[in-house]
């Protein structure tokens, strides 16, 4: 992993602009960048408190959308099923074990993510369906886009530990941690290059059965 930290100017508020690349140097989407303040209680500027947003993970064409959803601890997520078949959403993850038995449309209640960590979602009917809810222990986080960039805006000035997580992260999240200082009137740029594990997923594509003769 290599790192590049550049302090820049000409911004109206504290802001972190992150760029995440994979081991080959290509932009990496669906990485979560999390900034944790060194001083407890140092928070400001987020538009909504945890649990007040309507955050959803859709089920469309037998896939979860989005593939990665970062939320803060205490956030509730709804899992509407927009397919015309029933899904059965579950997670065995320590950060949140839950099950939404067969349903179409909106489930009875959203799911509260009340512990930090990574929650792996699956569908009991369609084994290839997978998605991740990253439950952050900080209000300052963002997910990288296709260009590998993510912006953490409205950061109060102060010192932060910034780390990166990705579903295929080869090492530990802690190994990606960088200390960063943010000022009220500055933009901080940081980049990460992280090694990934191969993207093995349960195949959805059809393959021939064991044909007779």
């Amino acid at each position: 992993m290599s790192a590049c930290l550049l302090a820049a100017t000409s911004a109206s508020a504290g802001e972190l602009r992150a760029l995440v690349r994979d081991g080959d140097g290509k932009p990496l989407a669906d990485a979560v960048v999390v900034a944790v303040a060194h001083v407890a209680g140092q928070r400001a500027g987020r538009p909504a408190a945890p649990g007040t947003d309507t955050i959803i993970i859709d089920q469309v064409n037998k896939e979860f959308i989005p593939y990665v959803l970062p939320v803060e601890v205490g956030t509730s997520v709804n899992f509407p099923n927009r397919d015309n078949i029933r899904h059965h959403v579950y997670s065995f993850s320590d950060a949140k074990r839950f099950e939404l038995p067969l349903y179409i449309g909106d489930p009875a209640a959203p799911v509260l993510f009340d512990k930090p960590g990574t929650v792996i979602l699956g569908c009991n009917i369609h084994d290839w369906m997978i998605a991740y809810v990253y439950v952050a222990n900080s209000p300052y986080y963002a997910k990288t886009d296709a260009a590998g960039t993510a912006t953490l805006a409205q950061l109060p000035s102060g010192r932060y530990s910034v780390r990166v997580w990705h579903p295929r992260l080869a090492g530990t999240e802690d190994e990606t941690t960088k200390p960063l200082a943010v000022t009220d009137e500055g933009v901080v740029e940081a980049s990460w290059q992280i090694s990934l594990t191969p993207d093995f997923r349960i195949p959805r594509a059809p393959v021939p059965g064991q044909a007779g003769y």
Partner: peptide
């Protein structure tokens, strides 16, 4: 005895 090698082409073809 059957052996096969499948190239998965996206999510919907092989």
């Amino acid at each position: 005895l059957q052996l096969s090698l499948s190239r998965l082409i996206g999510a919907d073809a092989s």
